[in-house]
Amino acid sequence: MSFRDIGMKIQAAREEKGLSQEQLARLVGCSQSALSNYEKGKRRLYLSQLEKMAEVLDKPLEYFVDSLSSSHPPQPTSSDRDERFVKLVNLLGRLSDEEINEVMRYIEYLEWKRSGGS
């Protein structure tokens, strides 16, 4: 992850919108060279600046920062099973230590049942 990832998303969104660097720079109130550095990841973007770009480029803020996600953890796909898995893990995050222990005991019970209950 890096600001380079965010920069690449800016470039992609800008090109999708059919804007030149100069045009986008003018619309968000920065210089063309600054925008060029943002896209190359050589200059740090702050929230207010990215909010302006997101507005001009008709993208949610999340579109740009989603690229910050680490590539190591499994990424949710469109499959129903994966979506349910993501939901389950997020639900687990709300549980107390004791409740997580209960869930683990239940999973152990399911594994025991699947193995024939021996």
Binding site: V65, S69, P73, P74
Partner: peptide, 8 residues
Amino acid sequence: TDMFKKKA
């Protein structure tokens, strides 16, 4: 707020 996205 999302353990898969972490930083994002």
